[in-house]
Amino acid sequence: MGKIKGIELLKNGKRLDGRMPLEMREIEMKVGVIPNANGSAMVRFGKTIAVAAVYGPRLLLPKHLQENDRAVVQCRYNMAPFSTDERVKPGPTRREIEISKVIRQAVEPVLFLENYPKTTIDIFIEILQADGSTRVTSINATSLALADAGVPMKDLVVALSGGKINGTLILDLNGLEDNNSEADMPVAFTANKKEITLLQMDGELTKEEIKKLLKEIFTAGEKIYQMQIKALKDRYSE
């Protein structure tokens, strides 16, 4: 909440964790981490760890929630109580409710929902450790979990955050940067068609800065896409 004023986040052109402005943190992806789920994945961006599980398509109950011509996607983004400096009280916060909604909308466009009437595709996301950019980390994990579940997809969904610190545009904000940035802008897009499926922004950016940042996110996103493909191949070539 609120911003610590006057924090120097950029020294001699480098960020406090030593990264260059457009450099991402170390990224790790692993598919098939929850045996009970139809599909699952863990994605780590630096210290931020998200685990996503997909159950379904399965019959949606109670019945009145069913749609006769398509599947419903239900998504729950949840932070583990121990995932942050101060304990997160269990139970959905307003922030988590909103993030669940935007994550759902970030992946829905790649699914063939019309093929599975009356069912639900349930996406459950647990943030095990939070150090900024948790929603985009979650979306990468969800993209992998959906593919792992064998749910037909038009494309993989790639997600990355951008922002601005000390007047400089950056990628992949960590927690400290997230809390003290001049702006942060999480983005998700379909890897091949480059359709933006999540776009949020907080802070102060000009239109030109938004365009520049989107371009950098698309470029860096290609690396994330290649990592997703590798993680999926690794899972099934064991």
Partner: peptide, 29 residues
């Protein structure tokens, strides 16, 4: 904002391409 800085964005619904975002920002301003 009054100085034409954009201070928050929220997207809903299906996907948008970069040209959409460009034109939508112009119209919003």
């Amino acid at each position: 904002r009054e100085d034409n800085y954009l201070c928050s964005m929220q997207k809903g619904g299906k996907g948008l391409n970069i040209k959409d975002v460009d034109e939508m920002i112009d119209l919003a301003i």
